[in-house]
């Protein structure tokens, strides 16, 4: 049977996060914790493959102990197994050691055919982690996927690129990062959630993964944040104009080089 891993992250609900105007940091205290939205789209594609050909889906997440709720939620939607990668040593990791840690987890699970992840997270939006994991594992990757199918050892996926769609067919093992809103994730089920709570989430730390403290967490992170700046949104000018003036206004904007009309 196919072995699928879905990488997820618990994030503060982005609609509830506020920016502290003094400290310039995100105030997450009030926000509910949710599964990163694109990760749910990734899980949904994994579940569709499971529905089609049968698969064993393992959800993994690197995060604090409370992130087990996010994994249980994924199991309540249909994943079979959950592993939380949690250790003080992992704290403060940027995307590089995060990719390394997740890759080590996948290597330890073993014989994984397809790895899914969300394209990016709402709380850091780097989009690095998926590709990083693929590189550490030395396998092919499909990024920006908005449609995913599986047939006889191949993943067929449509990538949403700037100048058009691209459909690719890649032999497993392969890592796929899925775009936000590319499908409608199924709901959690009571039956599955009860079973998930009973089964529980496995917890792996640095020792289980055979990693060195120097490679992970803050110490293993090459990124240095020097300072943060809040960007002031430019003021928007809202104007209602009569419909017969639209052509004149467009012509004016084009002449001032503010917009371009037609072609690239």
């Amino acid at each position: 049977m196919l072995n699928i891993v879905v990488m997820i992250k618990q994030v503060p609900d982005s609609s509830e996060v506020e920016i502290d105007p003094v400290k310039m940091t995100l105030n997450r205290t009030k926000a509910r914790n949710v599964v990163n939205a694109a990760d749910l789209n990734a899980l949904e594609f994994a579940l569709r493959i499971k529905d089609k050909v049968g698969a064993n889906i393992t959800v993994i997440s690197m995060g604090p102990p409370m992130a087990d709720a996010a994994i249980i939620e994924c199991m309540a939607r249909g994943a079979d197994r959950g592993i939380l990668i949690t250790d003080r040593a992992f704290a403060g990791a940027d995307t590089y050691p995060t990719g390394l840690t997740l890759a080590a987890t996948i290597a330890k699970i073993g014989n994984v055919d397809i790895i899914f992840g969300g394209d990016e997270t709402t709380d850091s939006s780097t989009g690095h982690v998926g590709p990083g994991v693929a590189e550490f594992l030395g396998i092919d990757q499909i990024t920006y996927a908005k449609e995913v199918d599986y047939e006889d050892g191949y993943v067929i996926a449509t990538r949403d690129l700037e100048d058009g769609d691209e459909t690719v067919k890649v032999h497993t093992p392969v890592l796929i990062t899925v775009l936000l809103n590319s499908n409608i994730p199924r709901h959690q089920s009571l039956r599955k959630k009860i079973d998930a709570i009973r089964k529980g989430v496995e917890s792996w730390g640095i020792n289980e993964l055979g990693l060195k403290p120097d490679w992970v967490g803050l110490r293993g992170s090459p990124t240095i944040v020097r300072s943060m700046k809040a960007i002031k949104e430019p003021e928007h000018l809202h104007k209602t104009v009569p419909i017969d003036q639209i052509d004149t206004i467009i012509a004016d904007l084009v002449s001032k080089n503010i917009i371009k009309v037609g072609g690239k």
Binding site: E73, A76, Q188, S189, L190, K193, I194, I197
Partner: peptide, 9 residues
């Protein structure tokens, strides 16, 4: 008690 959230009976 077993608490299960996010589910509508």
């Amino acid at each position: 008690a077993m608490l299960v959230t996010g589910i509508t009976v």
